[in-house]
Design a protein around this nucleic acid. Structure first.
Lengths: 254, 254
DNA sequence: CGCGTAATTGAATCATTTCAAATATCGTGG
DNA sequence: CCACGATATTTGAAATGATTCAATTACGCG
């Protein structure tokens, strides 16, 4: 039965696969590497939808998202929000704030989430002792950057293709997590949030949603979105499958 | 005299400061770290304006920009270009391509440039032996990412503030290089290139340039731009000074 | 002097915003 | 089970920033 699989060994397997999802795209981690990632020091928190990730001491906090959805949003003076990125399990969240002395963006949960709160000292240890994981961390940062570059290309295009591209990339990740760990494929975003992420007004996103719905590209109700036609979203946005390269130059595993 | 400073030791000092400019914002490198960066294996090339950076073997090439201006541009099927980023001395160029198996973007010189062509194996050595430099490399990637986030915020705003923000950030870097190494402060971009970077049409950028010129914000002629009023560009774009944090958690120097 | 590239201008068009109001939906407490 | 308030979605019409496209002008270089 379904219920059986969700207990005992099954569930902890799933948990691990989700938490490592991002790293697994680049390497097959060694036993030591897995052990390091599994036993990262720091409290494990559970938040519910809408909660803001706690900022501890010197702003140098990092989170490893273990389960659930979160977003990284900038809140401007007039209360308007802009969503920079949508985070899924396996994401290391808060890294972009490492370098700047003015925070200005907040991370909050879209659904119930589980996360591991880390401090920067784990980065130090990683760079000193787990060279390959350190390199992968840099690669993931580069991947995010490349994604932003791509997003910039979409920004000259029409809002339709931007919306399509947004959904296409998210759905890609969701599908992947679904395959490797049975992650639920519905995307939990209100229209306002979608608008903030795509970069249009809520009023206009509504019209776009209606078009997409009419063309059977998506299903949307009550802040729950489901992609029905992944391929069409890809061609609408003129994006192709996102494929990361497994680099050959990486340091040897520890 | 000026001319004296530009010869002998002076000039090689300058060269080094330029090439390390980016790293220096995060750490004071040790003698070993400097030695490593100075003696990176790989050919040193000189290109002239308009030249495309050579892509060698397996696409895994990296360049350290030693002097001059370059851009990273995506060229779409219909020949339209979009400029992702403008590169200055000290930039490690080509990193974003590390992770993707579809290149799609080219790097070309805006002025005469000097660069060091590297292969990915230097990254491996860096991650294995120079932990602090490796961490700084990741931080720079995060910095780029944060810059893109900021750019995204501007993308909802009007083209005026986007243009202002674009110039503001570039000028910031140019000023910095000018202070530490006497780098020339004129920005070598055609209107078409500015348009491709800001994300508007050349026709419209022209109108914006005229406004900016009329308000004594910039000087522009023959593809040479000079910022006259840095502060006003900042307030027009609603951006504040970009300040990177020197992190305390970094690994010890090698 | 003339050619090629870069910059400038005009007028029509369009995608998206703005703003305000109307409607739907959920969870909650009575 | 219903009414209520809060939040989320939907709609309309007017205003606008930016594009498009084609044509014109300026500039530098051989």
């Amino acid at each position: 039965m379904e219920l059986c699989l969700e207990r005992g060994v099954g569930v902890s397997e799933k948990r691990m696969v989700l938490a490592l999802a991002r790293v697994l795209r680049y390497i097959d981690p060694s036993a030591e590497e897995i052990a390091f990632l599994q036993s990262l020091p720091g409290p494990e928190l559970t938040l519910s939808a809408g909660d803001i990730f706690p900022r501890s001491h010197d702003r140098d906090d990092l989170y490893l998202l273990l389960d659930g959805w979160a977003v990284n949003a900038a809140i401007s003076a007039d209360g308007a929000e802009r969503i920079h990125s949508v985070h899924l399990p396996g994401d290391m969240v808060g890294m972009a704030n490492l370098v700047l002395d003015a925070p200005s963006d907040a991370i909050y949960a879209l659904t119930a989430v589980q996360l591991k709160q880390l401090s920067c000292s784990v980065l130090r240890e990683m760079f000193e002792r787990f060279h390959r994981l350190a390199a992968v961390t840099m690669l993931i940062a580069q991947e995010e950057r490349a994604l932003k570059h791509e997003w910039n290309l979409l920004h000259t295009a029409t809002a339709t293709s931007r919306f399509a591209g947004f959904l296409y990339r998210i759905n890609e990740r969701v599908n992947h997590l679904n395959e490797i760990a049975g992650f639920d494929r519905t995307i939990p975003l209100t229209q306002k949030q979608i608008a903030e992420a795509v970069g249009v007004t809520p009023a206009y996103i509504n019209r776009l949603i209606q078009t997409f719905r009419a063309n059977d590209l998506i299903k949307y109700q009550r802040s729950q979105l489901q992609v029905l036609d992944h391929e069409s979203l890809g061609s609408l946005s003129a994006l192709h499958e996102w494929r990361v390269e497994k680099p050959k130059w990486l340091p040897a595993p520890t």
